[in-house]
Amino acid sequence: MISPHPIAALIGILIVVLSIASGLIWIERRLLALWQDRYGPNRVGPFGLFQVLADTIKLLAKEDWIPPFADKPVFIIAPAIIMVTVLMSFAVLPVAPGIIISDLSVALLFFLAMSSLGVYSIVLAGWASDNKYSLLGGLRAAAQMLSYEVFMGLSLMGIVLLAGSFSLTDIVHAQQRIWFIVPQFLGFLLFLVAGLAETRRLPFDLPEAESELVAGFHSEYSGMKFGMFFVGEYLGITLISAMITILFFGGWMGPVLPPIVWFLIKTFFFLGLFILIRASLPRPRFDQLMAWAWKLMLPLALANLLVTGAVLLAFYR
């Protein structure tokens, strides 16, 4: 199914998503400050709102340094990949009835595919930098991505079973009666954890791990190339928050307010949650990270799938 106004939606979503992502930088700093009993950026413009602008100007004005020992083409392409893959995922997100760029029937699979591709950005950046810390960061990212991608997909299969479709629009429509958070609570938790890991957010920021690896895969990056990683991360958070909204919290659905507002409210709630998690939780060791993925999360995801399937078989035949 094709959206009624694909070009308008494309431009609209792109603008909104990008401004949310950059605005998030300000929001995150203000929220972190709030929870740490500080003020955060409050000097540039009203409430420090122009801080992002100032930072952007600073990043643009900085020397765009490519280390002489780097693999130059790969070094340049790497930050672009993350931007592209994450932005591609937004193409299949149903924001509200009619506001969607491409209503793919396999949208969920497309989302999973794109988020997996994103890891290339990190791995290539780490490798192209020709720096041991960057390389370690890249390796960690690869391993982390592989491990968490597996049960991320599996944790969503329950929803697919319930909705009977890979189309995100269908999934939202399937939540008319009840949000999938209720039948799929375990799936939600698993997806939340996987989403955090997928976006390499704290507490799962092991590829960066500034206390261990300088700045991990982007140690050698500066200027706007670093800015792309930076924005890419916030795009990722926005994407995961939007996906949680769509998959488990009924997407745009809600009383009184227009659908798009509901969608934004729900998305921002999860964005806030992501930041709260960052403010609260410490980073695990890498072996713990791996152990959780394979020994805890994967079995739980499988169990969730089995139980969902069994219940469906038993009651909704």
């Binding site: 740490q36 009993d37 500080r38 003020y39 709260l276 403010a279």
Partner: peptide, 11 residues
């Protein structure tokens, strides 16, 4: 951590 939203800021 969330409860810190309602505490006085030290800055």
């Amino acid at each position: 951590v969330f409860l810190h939203s309602f505490q006085r800021r030290v800055t």
